[in-house]
Design a protein around this nucleic acid. Sequence first.
DNA 1: TAATGGATGTTCT
DNA 2: GAACATCCATTAT
Length: 200
Amino acid sequence: MPRRPRSFFERYTPDVARGLLGSRLVRVLRGARMSGVIVETEAYRGSRDPASHAFRGRTGRNEAMFGPAGHAYVYFTMGVHYCLNVTTEGEGTPGAVLIRAVQPEEGVGIMRKNRGVDDVLRLAAGPGNLTRALDIGRALNGEDLVRSDRIFIEAGARAGAIGVSSRVGVASGRSFKWRFFVKGNPFVSKGRPSLPSQNP
DNA sequence: TAATGGATGTTCT
DNA sequence: GAACATCCATTAT
């Protein structure tokens, strides 16, 4: 499958988030290839979105969100986990898509080992779990997904029906319905139970 | 089965 | 010093 080109990421962030569903996230580690189909994403955009790290302007951490599209933005959260984002929009316009879950395909054995969990359904469901399964950390922050041979995104089959909801775990910006997921796919993270979400 | 809270580091006020 | 784009084990129902 061909890799997603720069132009794929240089668009309105929610459109990129939706478009990434069905694409394949690939991680190459010590010559071994791990991959999974993206089944859940969230968009964070610009200075009008209070939940976005870029809301309060450019800082050392969110630098990547302001840079060119198609790069990785990896940050540490809640003292325990890393989260993987893909930068979007044009240079100077902050935007990123949080990858919340993938459906593991290649390298499942390695992911199991990295996670210490056997259940494939839970290997990469949730942003923290996903980065742990694929061994993604601060070293990959700023990585160019269009050129890197360590992490990149390939085109995939068209995703099925797409569900939309507000984002998981954010206190503000609840009115933005910017979480996208493949409807009925069991690899989608549950998010926090009892928040508005799925439709049958 | 739903709710609660602890672990834990970085960033920004 | 507070807040945080989380996860999971433990507790209460």
